[in-house]
Amino acid sequence: MPFNPKKFIDESIPKIKEQIGNSRAIVAVSGGVDSTVAAVLVGRAIGTNLACVFVDTGLMRVDEGKTVKKMIEGVGIKLKVVDAHERFFKELKGVEEPEEKRKIIGREFIRVFDEVEKEVKAEFLVQGTIGPDWIESGGAGRDKIKSHHNVAGLPSGMKLKLCEPLRDLYKHEVRMVARELGLPKELSERQPFPGPALAVRVVGEVTPEKVEIVRKACKIVEEELENASEQGKIERPWQYFAALLPTKTVGVRGDERAYQHTVVVRAVRSLDGMTANFSHIPPELLQKISTRITNEVREVGRVVYDITNKPPGTIEME
């Protein structure tokens, strides 16, 4: 029997009611499909006992905060936005190792939630954890591929109990649930975005300046690939973005020597994120993306396209 989203919803709501009872819960939404579906399901189960929080880490994409607020409030959930820019950058200063970065981000998220928890007196933390998150985080004989912050980034002394209604699902199944719940297309079909956000798209140390470079480059990649797919020129990739490599290379700009950053563009085709192949983007489109990035993001002097499948690569860089 293929996955049945209606049956899943009908079975999940009583289970969530039983787990949370009359306690209060907070849900951390990122604006992605997983956390939003988790929020809507739990909202249907426990109503106003659910408080919904968006943490603005400073690692988000262009206008992410505004977009998320509009989308979440559009489906009838009241959203509290917490500005945590400074503390995330402060904690990440000088840290290069990817696992360390992911752990710091997980820990900071929990610190923010602990503070919110005191205000709303929550006992449960709802997360949109799905299959690949806990699978890649290791355990039961599995190698740890990366610590998804909502699983392996959680500190051991955490006070909140976890409620993860989507644990056995994969992205394509979550999207089916989102459509069944009547969520708007811009949400149900939104491309996946990593929990640690742009921090894993800056290879090496994260600084506000580097995040700004990658933010601009991501916006260009999104615009160009979304336009091309709307015009029917390409199949919309499963996930598409730019990342900043810790390598500077030499270039020439207006007859002057330049020594600038390298950006990698990645676009992949997948169903569930477990395996992926690089998207076969037409050269003219790659050229347009490359030219726009080097014209509009003045710190970038070279653009490369990632032609690695998963395995052996992962979708994101870190």
Partner: peptide
Amino acid sequence: INLGSQYTHVIWRTVRDLG
């Protein structure tokens, strides 16, 4: 029998989907 594959749960999903 789970020997630690990244895809163990995907095998589970596929077998379930086959009924």
